[in-house]
Write a protein that binds this DNA or RNA. Structure first.
Lengths: 110, 110
DNA sequence: TAGATGTATCTATTTTGTAGAACAAATCGC
DNA sequence: GCGATTTGTTCTACAAAATAGATACATCTA
């Protein structure tokens, strides 16, 4: 069984997957904020991306600079086969742990 | 916005919620293994339960010792109102981050 | 009373999460 | 041309969560 990944690692992985061919640090960070409703620091995102690459779940390559203001080279990330497997595994676990939990949670007394 | 909880913290919280009135350390640990397909050490589970109580998401009380072999007192955990809110919040985020991710993940080339 | 069993606590370490300053490369406007 | 501005990444440090496993405890059984 492959090593489990962390919570932020998973969210970042999903975000990279969703962005497809346009997954680079700052864009991932923006998506993250939208989806989760909270802000992540620059550092949080980049270190996580780096860790995912170290684990072999992502790989990256640099793009050519763009002819626009601030258009420096981007580091584009992409899922590896292992990354896709990690996603499926995470999905399986998420489905399992949430199963049988009613959407509206009640307390008998509080 | 309340502080986010960790991955294992969430799974433990859900497990306690599901067990209702019979949520104590070792039982939670067994459920965890079944749901996730992996083993958690004793320490992993208890420290997580303790953290959740410290955060006010769970509360606990000791039972009387049971008249069975190994029947020492159990520590029963229960969701607090804050714990229930944390669950809902986690559910909202999980739904959001998984949205649009196809169940079958494909790689264009690998 | 020694061993088995089911339970909880304690201690230490590794892995993840988090922040933000520093650095880099491009355009814009004067 | 060159400083200001913009978009992007790297580096460094620290806090929080995850994890393991030894130890302690209470009860039955033989």
């Amino acid at each position: 069984m492959s090593a489990a990944i962390g919570q932020l690692e998973l969210i970042v992985l999903l975000t990279v997957a969703r962005r497809g061919d346009d997954a680079y640090g700052l864009a991932v960070r923006r998506d993250l904020s939208e989806r989760t409703g909270r802000d992540y620091s620059i550092g949080a995102v980049y270190t996580t991306l780096q860790r995912l690459e170290d684990k072999g779940l992502l790989r990256s390559k640099a793009t050519d600079p763009l002819p626009v203001r601030g258009g420096r080279s981007r580091r584009l990330f992409k899922l590896t086969a292992a990354g896709a497997r990690a996603m499926r595994e995470a999905e399986r676990i998420a489905t399992s742990v949430w199963a049988g939990i009613p959407s509206t949670i009640r307390l008998e007394h509080a």
